[in-house]
Design a protein around this nucleic acid. Structure first.
Lengths: 346, 346
DNA sequence: CTGAAAGCGCTTACAG
DNA sequence: CTGAAAGCGCTTACAG
């Protein structure tokens, strides 16, 4: 199809003229705003095809009084879990005519606070914010912009929130470790002990359920969920246990696959074999979980489902009163435990 | 600051009224379109601060005849290299008032072709497309939408392109491997042997320069740049060499860190120690390169620089004729070789 | 350096 | 189910 570069883009008027109907009717067909007779619809669709018309979203948004963009804040896009989530959110948002403005909080409490409290540089139809540090009770709504929180939050009912049931996922991981024979399970990760219903709390519950102890010396909070930190803390833990004459753990739960990769390094350097001596399970199912040595057992959240829920909740909040149920809804997405080499025992 | 939720958002008119000037003047201050006297500017800025005014981008874009959005196509957002690049591009685009529409090609030739040839669903001020399969000569411009290609392209001068000098980077990797004593270097990766100035061609040149042979049996193209493929192909190569009574390589160049991680697995399973028996170097410097066993030496591209160049080229192409130099400019960003454990020898 | 006014391309009461 | 017209909030010649 050859196009004349100098001819201006076709507008709604051009389509209307060609189809012999009013702009309003074309608008109704394109936007699905009101029912149109089949005959008219066909004429309009033909005219759209002939002219190659595509709507001008700026004009549409201006007329409808919305910005057409939502903001998505994640710790770092470089982390595959969040990148993947972002991809799904972009897709879900596009379905509703939204463009996603990406924002990175750098995974710090200040970064999270900033995006929630500072004035955005442009108008937004809504915000999806993935928090790691900020507790939901600390989030104060500064205005009426629709907001959905993602992540590991305590259910408190004041702000819309979507995530997986981290507690249940942690519990499943613990049951899996117990099932492959672990008796001394260590937990490594940021946020350990801070919330009541998070993944590490679930692990503890799962261990108790399996009749295993939750040993304080094996609970290791870390400063950041990175591989380096995971390696450092596990190395430290092994040294302390050795010094105390205590045996090493025979199972490790890491809050994140990246942390688990660091744990793998630390265990290897201490001469412990995975999974023979120590079984290791991570969380997130990043692409690299299948390329580590050994491959990593992990918990995989249904990220597409999380994305759909989040964007849907934003849509339900559009124009709704501050006390609408969509403002405070809590939605859960499913997860799956993916067993791989790091917990494979005969 | 308490805000009345029911009061409508302040507009340019409101600011103008408050400052006692015309809309045009406020517009000039906000957009920097024309010089304004210091005294007037101050009055306007004060009024903006008092009203909490923020521009409506839909209205601005409509008036200026642009869409305010550019499209960025990457193979998969889950790959940290591209996620990081996307983050930088979002930042660079925001500086120029652009919102980035994210698109994933899935890393396939069809996906790349589709985004370049199909009609976008909305109007775009430009496109940045990261290609892996499509050769630049195959890219046919279907319309006047500004376009910048990213990736490993042959310089041909017909379409704007930004990337690092992959050939030089490959050469640097080869020189590094030679420097740590490698004599039999294998190359693993998709696209091997397809282009003349790409990273693997650079590796070959670097090896020759160091007086080392480029051994055909050590050149291994793979179907996709993934860890699984890297592991499969290296395993296969080692088996073939063994069967032929040939020694294994003592150095491996992988086109991607992820492929290198797969190579690490294959080497380990074949009983070869890294770096003692085989030195391994990857490409991209993904965050996990510091968490693999051993940590991965790699080539790090200056992604912020790539992003800046790409967005700047798009801006230069705005409204310019099809024969403007920005339509065909080639720009290079710097890179660095990052030595880690996988090539560390005493 | 500043003003008054037209226009960007849509949507949406309102009237039929 | 369809039309004619106002309006969304900006920018930009044009005139001063």
């Amino acid at each position: 199809m050859v196009k004349d570069r100098r001819s201006p883009r076709p507008r709604l008027t051009d389509v209307a003229e060609r189809a012999g109907v009013s702009m309003k009717t074309v608008s109704n067909v394109v936007g699905g705003y009101a029912p149109v007779s089949d005959r008219t619809r066909e004429k309009v669709l033909a005219a759209i095809a002939e002219t190659g018309y595509r709507p001008n979203l700026s004009a549409r948004n201006l007329a409808r009084g919305r910005s057409g963009t939502i903001l998505l804040a994640v710790p770092r896009l470089e982390l595959p879990y969040f990148a993947s989530l972002a991809g799904h959110i972009v897709t879900a948002a596009a379905t509703r005519g939204w463009t996603v403005l990406l924002h990175q909080t750098d995974g710090t409490a200040e970064g999270e606070r900033a995006v929630l409290e500072e004035e955005p540089s442009q108008r937004l139809d809504g915000m999806i914010v993935s928090t790691q540090h900020l507790r939901a009770v600390e989030v104060h709504r500064t205005d009426a912009v629709p907001l959905v929180l993602l992540g590991d939050l305590e259910p408190h009912g004041a702000i819309a929130h979507v995530g997986i049931d981290n507690w249940a996922a942690g519990r499943a991981a613990a049951v899996h470790l117990a099932g492959v024979g672990c008796r001394r399970v260590a937990m490594i990760g940021a946020g350990i002990g801070t919330t009541r219903r998070d993944r590490t709390a679930g692990v503890a519950a799962g261990l108790r359920e399996a009749g295993l102890p939750v040993l304080p010396e094996l609970l290791r909070p870390i400063a950041a969920n990175t591989g380096e930190e995971g390696e450092r803390v596990v190395t430290e833990m092994l040294a302390e246990l050795r010094a105390a004459g205590a045996p090493p753990p025979d199972g490790v739960f890491a809050v994140t696959d990246w942390v688990a990769m660091g744990a793998l390094r630390a265990l290897h350097r201490s001469g412990l074999a995975v999974p023979a001596d120590v079984a290791v399970i991570g969380f997130d199912d990043i692409p690299y979980a299948t390329s580590s040595l050994p491959t990593l057992s992990t918990i995989a959240a249904d990220r597409a489902c999380i994305a759909d829920h989040a964007v849907a909740l934003l849509e339900e909040q559009q124009g709704s009163a501050m006390d609408s149920p969509a403002r405070t809804a809590q939605r859960f997405a499913p997860f799956a435990l993916v067993p791989r080499e790091s917990t494979a025992r005969p």
